[in-house]
Design a protein around this nucleic acid. Structure first.
Lengths: 255, 255
DNA sequence: GCAAAAGTGTTGTCCGTACACCCATGC
DNA sequence: GCATGGGTGTACGGACAACACTTTTGC
């Protein structure tokens, strides 16, 4: 048989789903949209949509991200754009046969890291969107398996996808400069520290953190200005430097 | 419009492609099969095939791996099986519109790490298979963009997929115990060191390596036996321990 | 003055590196 | 004996944690 005989393989629908993370009020939050139709009508879900004909997977993810947030994301490989660009990278692909009860759908999940935006801009076919702390969205670890049905607030297998995205973000800021993607173009060392603290859910020593990030070549470049928007003594403003890998990495405290 | 109207999305073919790596004669090698048909007839390609109806992505990858190598792989999440199991994990998904000239194909690439097998067992629809050193398969970095057409020996975008898989393997053995997946069930510290040296392409200090791996709790458990199969003084035999994360990590020497 | 946040200095400790040195086998 | 690989001891240095301490603002 020819392996490309059109009758020899089943057709799939291919979608992209987005795990869009930000840090708000010292907590890691994810963008979720309310489903307006069956199945899981009224439940929260990750934003996403179908990949179009003649559209690459990354392009579909960027399009969905722009529709939902207005953010202009740049690819992980390209040099950081000067726009208010979020970080976007492919996360993983989910294609279990029963994950959508209606048809066979393979979803290529992407992970986006965004600065704290003023407000979610609902767009596309979602009738509402919000930033929700990830603790509210993820299933509790120690929940008994026979708990009541609404064990996860997210539709489909989006709880699992979100958990994978959060885990990726938590580990990746450890050895890369990705944490700056959570910050506005100019930020202080304290603001960057609060990003790490929010993503990891821990407290870091401000003095050692300051020495660490300012001492890593290429991580931060001073922009010249200062700010007192966090109160206290004026703090230097920085931009993200060109370095993408942190060596030695930022050490996450033991659990 | 309903986003699930069957006429509202284009149908895709979904395949799994495998990056199967092993260490042979101190070199990192990948399993490739020769294509028997157009396009890229006669060129080498990564093994792979269509995902079946009602088949999960990981199940399709395990099936393809078994067909090509006879290996019984276990999932990344499950505890290590006692069989001669290889490591298998999802790598990334490739779906550029033109990557297959005949149709729109989305390929979910997987990464498998296998011990040095006696010989490749060609199976399925490939008429020949071999282990090839990855340096021969990857495009040279400094090649001029206007070099002659056969710049990469691999079909489709498999050169890129292989490069991503090699990069994943190289970085992952740094902070996990995955290097043991390249070893037979019982192995010596020296054999494990040769795995690291082959994957990274560097030389490691045998004394410090020994102290490091035997001093990391849960990484190696002595099996009681010894061997002289590498010559010299008899070496203790070990099995892989239960630990999956290496903390502190194995440090890769600077490039 | 007082609180709050930004920075700097110092010290002990852990860990990686480099290298000297000894051990046990095959030939 | 000698080559080969296995395994231990030890000294040096870099980096991190845990502080004490000073600086500069708003109120």
């Amino acid at each position: 048989m020819s392996p490309y005989d059109p009758s020899a393989f089943p057709p799939f629908a291919v979608t992209v789903d987005l795990v869009v993370l930000t840090v708000r009020r010292h907590a890691l939050c994810a963008l979720v949209v309310r489903r307006g139709e069956q199945p899981f009508q009224g439940r929260w879900a990750l934003p996403g949509g179908f990949v179009r004909e003649d559209e690459d997977l990354g392009a579909a993810a960027r399009r969905e991200l722009a529709e939902e947030t207005g953010l202009c994301a740049h690819d992980a490989g390209t040099p950081p754009a000067e726009t208010s660009g979020a970080h976007l990278e492919q996360l993983a692909t989910y294609g279990a046969p029963g994950r959508d009860p209606r048809m066979r759908v393979v979803s290529v999940a992407h992970l986006a890291l965004a600065p704290d935006l003023p407000a979610p801009r609902p767009g596309g076919d979602a009738n509402s969107a919000r930033w929700a702390p990830v603790e509210e969205l993820l299933e509790p670890e120690g929940a008994p398996p026979h708990s009541d049905e609404q064990q996860t607030p997210l539709a489909f297998d989006h709880g699992r996808i979100l958990a994978d995205g959060v885990e990726r973000a938590r580990s990746k800021i450890e050895y890369s400069s990705l944490a700056t993607a959570f910050c506005p173009p100019e930020f202080t060392v304290g603001e960057l520290r609060r990003v790490y603290e929010g993503v990891w859910g821990v407290a870091l020593d401000p003095r050692n953190f300051h020495r660490k990030v300012t001492g890593t070549p290429g991580f931060l470049v001073p922009s010249g200005g200062t700010t007192t928007r966090q109160g206290g003594r004026p703090a230097q403003l920085f931009r993200a430097g060109g370095a993408t890998l942190l060596n030695p990495p930022m050490l996450r405290p033991e659990v």
